[in-house]
């Protein structure tokens, strides 16, 4: 694919599925071994699953507000691997203090991308605070995450993808996306399996003998 065109919705903003697929494209070739992805509760978990239901994905069925901190724990435990947290604006707002904790820890291999549709998509499209001007990228920058980006245009996505795969973070990106919902692409719901398969992908069979 030359250049990056990402399909837009009725609002003129990027659609979530092609955006996430583009961010994860080539993930198996990321330095240090394949990129590890955590998908926050709700549509972001379905989005990373739609891009490929692989063991290096941890789609969340719960733990709202915890996705970014899970990424921190994983990034600190596996400093040579790239870790990408893809989550929603409502999920990020619930655990907003994590931006301060991550900024202080400075994990170079961690990126947090918020798919900001300005709504709680799973519960009836109620508006979130970002609908009313709350600037997540500004909050991340003020917390001390120097590479904090607000992305509204597909032309800025290739550079975002490169930075995520390069792992010179921590990186935070708030990407404004179209609010339309996509067909459900559900990952396994057995969370013990989700944990075990990612551990095995990272650690090999030893994962189950630790």
């Amino acid at each position: 694919m030359s250049g990056t065109t990402i399909e837009t919705g009725k609002t003129g903003k990027m659609k979530r599925r092609p955006l996430v697929r583009e961010l994860l494209r080539g993930r198996e070739n990321a330095p240090g071994g394949g990129l590890l992805a955590i998908g926050g509760l709700g549509a972001p978990a379905w989005d990373i699953t739609a891009a490929g239901d692989v063991p290096e994905n941890l789609p969340l069925w719960g733990g709202m507000g915890g996705a970014a901190m899970m990424g921190l724990g994983l990034a600190l435990a596996q400093p040579s691997r790239r870790v990408l947290v893809v989550t929603g604006d409502g999920e990020m707002l619930m655990g907003i203090g994590a931006l301060a904790t991550i900024a202080v820890q400075k994990p170079a291999n961690l990126s947090v991308v918020v798919l900001d549709n300005e709504h709680y998509g799973e519960t009836g499209m109620q508006e979130t605070h970002t609908r009313h001007g709350v600037d997540l990228a500004g909050m991340a920058r003020a917390a001390g995450i120097a590479d904090s980006r607000l992305i509204t245009d597909a032309k800025d996505v290739p550079a975002l993808r490169e930075a995520i795969h390069a792992g010179q973070g921590p990186l935070f990106a708030q990407v404004k996306i179209d609010e339309s919902s996509e067909p459900l692409v559900l990952p396994p719901r057995e969370a013990a399996l989700l944990q075990a398969r990612m551990r095995e992908a990272i650690l090999g069979p030893e994962a189950h003998l630790q």
């Binding site: 941890l58 915890g66 921190l72 724990g73 600190l76 435990a77 655990g95 202080v104 944990q195 990272i202």
Partner: peptide, 26 residues
């Protein structure tokens, strides 16, 4: 040891899930 000071304790529950995913103990 990596000491991570949290803004609220629930961050630690989430963090330690990631820690175990990555093969460390916390």
């Amino acid at each position: 040891m990596r000491v991570v000071t949290l803004t609220t304790e629930e961050e630690g529950v989430a963090q330690l899930f990631g820690t175990w995913l990555g093969g460390q103990k916390g």
